[in-house]
């Protein structure tokens, strides 16, 4: 990056490298996992799963940038498609759940022994 700001040696730590993105993706993954364990609403759980998938997307793009090849970018397209399919099925089943059990709270869904 040939900008004046980033080429100044004493400001080099401001440079954002792929490593930062990978660390951010790990944080995102952890946030998704935490939300998954603490949230009880089915819709929120589905959203947390989306966050986990997008953490993987971010990691793939960052690594693809670092390696300078296209494999990671290709995988991201597939993950986006798969995540869309997953949330479609998830919402459809959530609607069935709301109709049959009149609740979206995961703790109240206990016809089968958990």
């Amino acid at each position: 990056m040939p900008s004046l700001l980033f080429s100044t040696p004493h400001l080099a730590w401001l440079m954002i490298s792929p490593t930062h993105y990978v660390r951010l993706s790990a944080v995102l993954f952890a946030i998704g996992l935490m939300g998954l364990m603490t949230r009880r609403n089915v819709l929120m759980i589905l959203l947390c799963i989306e966050v986990m998938f997008n953490a993987a997307n971010l990691a793939f793009v960052a690594y693809a940038r670092a390696w300078g090849n296209l494999d990671g970018h290709v995988v991201v397209f597939f993950i986006i498609t798969v995540a869309a399919a997953e949330v479609t099925v998830g919402l459809a089943i959530a609607i069935l759940l709301a109709r049959q059990l009149k609740t979206l709270n995961a703790d109240e869904v206990r016809l089968l022994k958990w």
């Binding site: 759980i45 959530a94 069935l96 869904v109 016809l111």
Partner: peptide
């Protein structure tokens, strides 16, 4: 409802 519940648990 039991089938729907099974599907939801499996999906999550």
């Amino acid at each position: 409802p039991r089938s729907v519940e099974a599907g939801m648990k499996y999906l999550i």
